[in-house]
Design a protein around this nucleic acid. Structure first.
Lengths: 228, 228
DNA sequence: CGCGCGAGGATTGTTGACAATCCTGGTGAC
DNA sequence: GTCACCAGGATTGTCAACAATCCTCGCGCG
């Protein structure tokens, strides 16, 4: 079937893993992008047609996503997007807080001057975006900084865990951005982390990162039971 | 080979999840029990015969175990037990340290008098085992206490993450038990945690738990490159 | 009118066979 | 002797069909 060719059009030949992995990655991204609602059923046949992949590939992708905590599966009843309650989102943020603290600590220990420069550049861009009122870009900058810190920390285990956790509460993320006044504080918190990393102060870096994520959790707690 | 121990013969019909889950659980347990060596190849056909399960069930089990970080899979080259280096084991312990700290903090906030009594009972038993020179039982008691703390903390996310992490460095675990003098110190650390939880002091409980796991990591660091 | 209940459709779980790919061993040229 | 190279076997990836199970809807009964 030539139809399969259309799938990963933009992908270079360097794609190590076959269609199986592709199904996993694309389905995961689809869930993260909100193209499937929480509790929406994920019917294997539908997904198979939608992604032009065999049912087997879809099936293993669903198994892996279940292990990630992104979908739920019941024996003969199929898979559905796991709905993450507010309480669970807060739990996830609590776990993220301590892990991001660990990352910041290691980042402070390992950062080179070049790393610090890159972090500062990201921070400046966030400030500019904030002054321009572009909150979406501020949020994106925050993601970027987290990724930079992960890279600097050189801690594969923390990377793996945080990837999973960040994916899980991506749906609740946008709420915190809208919290009034949160933008300003968020940038200050990022600055504190960067400065601690720049100073090579692991304890302060850890504390700052923890505080930052804990503040996000508090912001979530403060927004009671808003719809979706 | 009687190792199969009579496949699923004794299982009542009450098994919630189908054969698929059974394959996952049994294969996982087999890896954790060391019945497969690190880097050993996991051939689907062999496992299928060994566990009397279809190749499909084995395949999804392997996919899930890969997501757990217990096996590695390459596109057409099959799966093998992931070998966890000493460096990675230390990373995992670092992550565990902060997460167990989180658990201890929540345990201190949630513990009822009955919970505290149960924790103290476990501690006493560990002391008795230690005085009797039964280090294996001491280690088991330590596991038991961790499980109790998880139950008291009521933090599903932390439970999930720690389950995965503890499974991963089960292979390196036995080394730390043998570290000279570690047993005594370990029991003292457990006592510190329990007392902090009993006092309802979250900060102290977190610190104590972190310190405890950090000490295990240090013990690992001190044993250089011992074989296996 | 409410409710157990069975038939039918829909969906998943499983099996077997086939295609695609990788690894191993041997062979020949230089 | 060493290296490129190519069959042959072993193993995984994929597909289509079948069996098992669940959910829904309509029907008869109290």
């Amino acid at each position: 079937m030539g139809d399969g060719s259309g799938i990963g059009a933009g992908m270079p030949a360097g794609c190590r893993r076959g269609a199986e992995d592709e199904g996993y990655l694309r389905l995961r991204q689809a869930i993260l992008d909100g193209r499937f609602l929480p509790n929406e059923r994920l019917v294997e046949a539908d997904l198979s047609k939608m992604f032009n992949l065999g049912r087997a590939a879809i099936r293993t992708a669903l198994a892996r996503l279940e292990q990630d905590g992104l979908v739920e599966r019941a024996p003969f009843r199929g898979a559905r997007v796991r709905a993450i309650s507010l309480a669970e989102a807060i739990e996830i943020l609590e776990a993220r807080a301590v892990l991001e603290g660990l990352v910041a600590r290691h980042a402070a220990l390992n950062a080179t001057p070049a790393d610090v420069a890159a972090l500062r550049a990201t921070l400046e861009r966030m400030e500019a975006d904030y002054r321009a009122g572009d909150l979406a870009s501020v949020s994106e900058g925050s993601s970027r900084m987290h990724r930079q810190l992960l890279a600097v920390a050189r801690h594969q285990t923390a990377v793996r865990l945080l990837d999973g956790l960040r994916a899980q509460n991506v749906r609740h993320q946008f709420r915190t951005i809208l919290a009034p006044g949160r933008g300003r504080g968020s940038i200050e918190e990022h600055r504190t982390i960067v400065e601690a990393v720049a100073a090579g102060d692991p304890k302060r870096a850890e504390k700052a990162a923890r505080r930052h994520v804990a503040n996000i959790a508090d912001a979530l707690r403060r927004i009671p039971t808003g719809t979706i």
